[in-house]
Structure formats: structure tokens, C-alpha cells
Write a protein that binds this DNA or RNA. Structure first.
Lengths: 204, 204
DNA sequence: TAGAAACTACACCGATCAGTGTATTTTCAT
DNA sequence: ATGAAAATACACTGATCGGTGTAGTTTCTA
């Protein structure tokens, strides 16, 4: 019995509408400035229905964050290849990162999440944990390259942070905190190449 | 006539108390969650007096940001010296940066400012301008080293961002966004040395 | 088609907040 | 000492907001 063919129940449609509306509103205005009344209106749903699905604004917001976090998976991690030049592989890794950072949806979510973290220590704590388990891709790659004897790295986690730093300083933080425009293709190329070359000059 | 000896006028004392209270409150709770009533109470001043000095919450907040910004001057910039090793000079420059980033007052201010910028494009715009004129120290130094033929840098502004990125990724952004503890002396040393060495490996 | 489950409209609560108006008192320079 | 400037207490507005209670309506399942 294909449940996916059958149209979703009313309850599920409403819930989805609420979540979608909440995403839009939180993205546009942040946590504090978004009201439950506006979310209900945008979802074309009774305010009471919102509270029947989510016990509080906090709970709804947490649900949104979880959902968006899961949706922002940036493809599977590239595996280390002993038969290919380090530079090529690192350029691919950074290019992948840059693609994610260039995604409008990802950036606006990140802005909301970070704004929330700044004002709520326990949420920040939550993000620390998730952040660490994400972003592991590059670390794994570096560990492999180190084990393979091609990189003189002592601490792969530290080194991964360094490489990411060289990317994020141009393609993430200015966009998040200052609303600056995302990078053009040429700028991305320049940032990636300079970062990788600097990284390899030190560690290769 | 030494005006500085004469005790400050009542008006000036009150104004100073308001500003001081506002700094504390905004630092502790951020813009949205801070009320004018609380500021007035903390300053031991009538709410009306607050509004006699500042026409709105916005105006008061802007004043605070200006004041704190001016207060966070990180000493005079170190000048380029042709007779000293690049590494030593860069380590000094980064150490200076790290000292500022380690300052509790600076961090909490930065958190407020960044939270404000995230939620207000025009404030963000303001900060972009100020940010650019600040942080010039390192750029100037790099330009001098380049003119002196000791660094193969094409774009000193870009390179300065890179070096700062390698520091801020460890000593600024995690503290601002995730409330993580500031770096220990050992960690600072490690971050600075690794950043400078990586930088020089690429540009020297 | 009966009835449980979910949705809705709507009124309401208590609290908070930015900002104002006013009549009175305090400060301080002349 | 006088008078202008500033501070104060206080009451009040108009609005928003998170959240609840209820009585009635719609949806869907069995």
C-alpha cells in the first residue's frame, strides 16, 4: 500500500504549512521579531492550530533549526585518493564548501541560527556539538593524506580549521554578519586557489 | 581655567550614568531584550531623563556603539622594520591582535554589535565602513614589506584578510557566535605561530 | 454514515514595551 | 537670591505578544 500516493492528511498538510511559514518568517526577521500570529497568518492556519502542533514558540523554532540543518547536507564527502595530486583534491573540497556557502537558503538559515546562538547559550551549545560532527569531511581527508605520508600535519582538526578559515573569512562571515553579497565565480576561484596554495606551502 | 577640575555638571553625570547602564544592559541582553525602563532603573535616573538625552532607543544604542567602538582602539600600529625578521614582526602583529580578541569587554561588545548588524542592514553598512578603516594596520605593514621586496604579495588587502582569518577562526568567531571560552596563552601562541608560518610559506 | 480527531474563529489574559505629557522639585550659574 | 535648565514622579497611550479557553465546524477514518 503506497502511502506516498495517497494525499497527505490534513494534519500533516497543516503542520508542513506551519513549518514552511515559520522558516520564511524566522529567516526574514529572526527569532525575537517574528510573532506566532504572523506565522499562523502566513501559513493560513489558525493560531490555535499552531499551538496544537507546537507547544511554544521555542519548540517551533527548535524544530525549524533541526529541519534546516538536516536539509543543508552538502553532498557526500570526497574520499582521499592516493593517485591524484593533493592540490586538485583540495581544490575540489574547497569548491564544494564554497558552493554551499554560496547558497542563498543556506546563508539565510545560518544567519538565523547564529543570531539565535548569540542570544541563547544552550542553543549555542547544541550547535557546537552539531558543528563538530559536521565539517568532519575535510578532517577525515587530511588524516588520510597524513597517514599516506603526503602531508606533514600534526593535528588534522586544527589544520582543517585553518583551511576553512581561509575560505570562510571571504565567503561566509562577511555575508552572515554584514549582509555582504556572495562571491562571484572569479572571486571564489581566487579564494580557493590562494587558500589551498597557502595551505600546501605549509603542510606539503 | 581648568574645567577638568570642576566637578561635572549634573546633566553630564546623568548622561554618563545612562550610557554606562545602557552598555551593561545591551551587553548582557542584546538590543531587543533590553528595555528603556531597565536602563533608566540601572542608571538610577528617571525614564523621562533618558528620553531627554536620547530621542529613542535606537539613538541611544547608536551612541553606545560609537562609544565602545572608539574605546576599542588596539594601540598604535606597529611600523614595518626592514632590519628585523619578517616572522618576528608578524608574530608581534598577530599577538597584538590576539590580545584585543582576548579582552572580555571587547568580545561582549563585538557580540552585541554583530547581533545588531545581523538584524539591521543599515547598521551593518555602517560597520562595513568602519571595519575597513580599522584593521588597516596590518595592510599597511604588508604593503611596506612588499615594497621592500621581502614579500611576494599581489594584493595586500587580500593577504591581510587571510592572515587575520587564520587568527579569528580560533580566537574570535567561536567566542562570538558560540560563546566558547577565550584562548589560553599556549593556544594563542600556537595559533599565531602556525598562522604566521603558513602565511610566510606562501608569501615569503 | 457515525464519531473521533483536527481545525477554526474569537475573545481574552497578563505582561511588556517605547514613548509622551505634565506638574513639581532640584540643580546651578549669574 | 533668582530664574532658567534639567531632573523627577507618575500616569497614561497604543500597540504587540505569547499563550489559553471554548464552542462550533470540518475532515477523515472505520
Amino acid at each position: 500500500m503506497p502511502t506516498s500516493v495517497r494525499p497527505p492528511r490534513l494534519t500533516e498538510r497543516k503542520r508542513a504549512a506551519i513549518v514552511e511559514a515559520a522558516i520564511d518568517e524566522f529567516r526574514a526577521s529572526g527569532y525575537e521579531a517574528t510573532s506566532m500570529d504572523r506565522i499562523a497568518a502566513r501559513a493560513e492556519v489558525s493560531k490555535r492550530t499552531v499551538y496544537n502542533h507546537f507547544p511554544s514558540k521555542e519548540a517551533l523554532f527548535a524544530e525549524i533549526l533541526h529541519q534546516l540543518w538536516d536539509a543543508s547536507r552538502d553532498g557526500e564527502d570526497l574520499a582521499y585518493r592516493a593517485d591524484r595530486p593533493l592540490r586538485d583534491q583540495l581544490l575540489e573540497l574547497t569548491a564544494q564548501k564554497l558552493r554551499l556557502l554560496n547558497d542563498e537558503a543556506f546563508v539565510s538559515l545560518a544567519r538565523v541560527a547564529i543570531a539565535a546562538a548569540i542570544h541563547s547559550p544552550e542553543r549555542a551549545q547544541d550547535m557546537v556539538a552539531r558543528m563538530n560532527e559536521r565539517e568532519e569531511g575535510l578532517t577525515v581527508w587530511l588524516r588520510a593524506a597524513k597517514a599516506n605520508g603526503r602531508l606533514k600535519i600534526k593535528d588534522p582538526v586544527f589544520a582543517a580549521h585553518q583551511l576553512q578559515a581561509l575560505v570562510k573569512a571571504f565567503a561566509f562571515w562577511p555575508q552572515i554578519t554584514l549582509g555582504q553579497p556572495s562571491l562571484s565565480a572569479r572571486e571564489r576561484k581566487r579564494v580557493a586557489e590562494s587558500a589551498v596554495d597557502m595551505f600546501l606551502a605549509h603542510y606539503a
